[in-house]
Simulated assay, not measured.
Amino acid sequence: MLYENALASAADLDGFRLEGDGAVSFPLGRLRLESKPQDDPEKDPNVVLWCPEDFGPNIAVEWDFWPIREPGLCILFFHAKGREGEDLFDLAPRTGAYEQYHHGDLDAYHVSYFRRRWPTERALHTCNLRKSYGFHLVAQGPDPLPAVLDAQGPYSLRLSIQDGEITFAIDGLVSFSWRDEQPLGGGKLGFRQMAPMIGDYANLRVSRL
C-alpha cells in the first residue's frame, strides 16, 4: 500500500488542491464535492480536486463512491504531469474548464464514469477512457451504476495500471481493459465533476502493482 486516505474530514484534505469554483464538505463523514451556483452562464462551473501525491506507473487506485445528485459527470484523472515532466502543481493555474486538462500543458489519462450530463449519456450508460494531450478516446465499456433515484452505495471503484495495461471495474465488474503501447510514466490523480453533479467519496487507496 502506497497511500490511504479515508476522506472523512477536512484534515484529510491537507495539501489537496481544488480547481474551479467548488465546495467540499463532510456531512456524512465522507467527502462531498460539488460546484457552487453560478451567476454568470458563460463561466465554467466544473471542478477538479487533486491529491497532492505523485505515484509511479504501475498502481491500483481504489475508492468508494456515492452519486448524490444528477445530471452530471464524474472523472478520475491519473498519471497527470506536465508535458515536459513538470510537477502538475508547478504548471499554470487551471480553473476547471475541461479544455485546460485535455489541450493544456499537461499529459494524463482520465476515466469518466457516471456519465449522466447529456441525454445521450443518460440513455446509454458507458465508462470512457481518454488519453491526453489531446482528446483521444481509447477504450469504452458499460457502466453498471444505477441512477441516483435507485443508488444505495457505496460503490467500489478500482482502476489498475500495470505495464501499460489499464483496467477499470465497478463492484468487481470489469468495464474495460486497454493496453497503451506508449504508456505515461505516472503522476498525480484527481477527481473531476461536471455541474450540477454532487458526489460523495471515501477510502481512497493506492497500492503498487
Rank of each mutant, 00 (worst) to 15 (best):
L2E: 13
Y3V: 03
E4R: 12
N5V: 03
D12A: 13
R17W: 02
R17T: 13
S25C: 07
S25V: 03
F26W: 00
R30K: 07
S35E: 03
K36W: 01
D40M: 05
E42F: 14
V48Q: 04
L49C: 05
P52K: 01
N58M: 04
F65W: 09
F65H: 05
R69Y: 00
E70C: 00
P71N: 09
L76W: 11
K81E: 15
K81T: 13
G82D: 07
R83L: 15
E84A: 14
E86L: 07
D90F: 07
L91E: 09
P93Y: 11
P93G: 03
Y98N: 09
Y109N: 13
H110Y: 14
H110E: 03
V111R: 04
S112Q: 13
S112C: 06
Y113M: 09
R115F: 00
R116F: 08
P119I: 14
E121Y: 04
L124W: 06
T126N: 13
N128C: 01
R130H: 14
Y133C: 12
F135S: 05
F135L: 11
P142L: 13
V148Q: 05
D150W: 10
A151N: 00
G153Y: 02
P154H: 03
Y155T: 05
Y155K: 07
S156R: 14
S156V: 06
I161D: 14
E165P: 00
E165H: 12
F168T: 06
F168Y: 15
A169I: 04
S175D: 02
R179D: 06
P183W: 12
P183I: 10
P183L: 12
P183T: 11
G187H: 10
G190E: 05
G190L: 07
Q193F: 11
I198S: 07
I198K: 11
G199Y: 00
V206C: 06
S207N: 10
L209E: 12
